[in-house]
């Protein structure tokens, strides 16, 4: 898919309701539940052995940049949104984008020596995107930079969400090995994951895109 170069400010780029996003079609990304056998604990495998999770089967994905900032817009069906956590057994809706940091990084959370960069958003902390790096299942860790800005909106049984980051953030980050680099005119790959809070989905209990989405940044 193409991340179009657009002539809009950062605010519009980061707004999932901005008219700019209507100008080009969304790429439909197919999602599947993560395999029960890949869950990293026996408890999770036992509790979720019926595989009743990760039922969101597709997400619409768009990308755009304005030369300064890169944005991804996700849209998916979610009839029952959860945006606040008041009790111990409540979990909020969440979404993530995953970018390989090396050529051979596996799509499922990377591996040692082949890490991945994850942009994570959770509906109970709506404006705070979290930059994570992971090199295997169960290893994701937050990094203090770069700043990932997020904006989500839930209406008519659908979430729309934009992740936004400075294109050059990798250059500024203290550990650039942990941060995906983006330059206009070049090609990249990414993967998508979604969690349904109403179904107590968190950690490896999610819907994810099992094949890379190819991405080109318009020059």
């Amino acid at each position: 898919m193409l991340a179009k170069r657009v002539d809009v400010g950062a605010d519009a780029l980061g707004d999932p309701g901005a008219s700019m996003w209507e100008r080009f079609p969304a790429r439909k990304v197919a999602l599947v539940p993560t395999p029960v056998g890949m869950q990293p604990s026996k408890y999770i495998m036992a509790k979720w052995r019926d595989g009743e999770f990760g039922h969101t089967s597709a997400a619409g994905l768009q990308a755009a940049h304005n030369g300064q900032e890169l944005a991804f817009r996700l849209e998916w069906e979610c009839q029952k949104s959860v945006t606040t956590i008041n009790d111990n057994d409540q979990f909020a809706d969440a979404a993530a984008l995953l970018f390989p940091l090396t050529e051979d990084a596996p799509l499922i959370m990377g591996m040692e020596g082949a890490p991945v960069n994850i942009w994570y958003w959770r509906a109970d902390q709506p404006k705070m995107g979290l930059n994570n790096v992971a090199d295997g299942i169960g290893t994701s860790r937050l990094t203090s930079s770069p700043l990932i800005t997020t904006q989500g909106a839930h209406a008519d049984g659908r979430w729309s969400l934009v992740f936004r980051r400075a294109l050059a953030a990798a250059a500024d980050a203290p550990t650039t090995g942990n941060v995906a680099k983006f330059e206009p005119g070049k090609d990249y790959r990414l993967a998508v994951a979604l969690w349904s809070g109403a179904n107590s989905e968190r950690a490896g209990l999610k819907a994810y895109s099992p094949v890379w989405v190819e991405l080109s940044l318009e020059g």
């Binding site: 036992a46 111990n88 057994d89």
Partner: peptide, 11 residues
């Protein structure tokens, strides 16, 4: 030795 499923108690 199999894990027994449970739930999270509420507040």
């Amino acid at each position: 030795g199999l894990a027994r499923p449970s739930r999270i108690p509420g507040r």
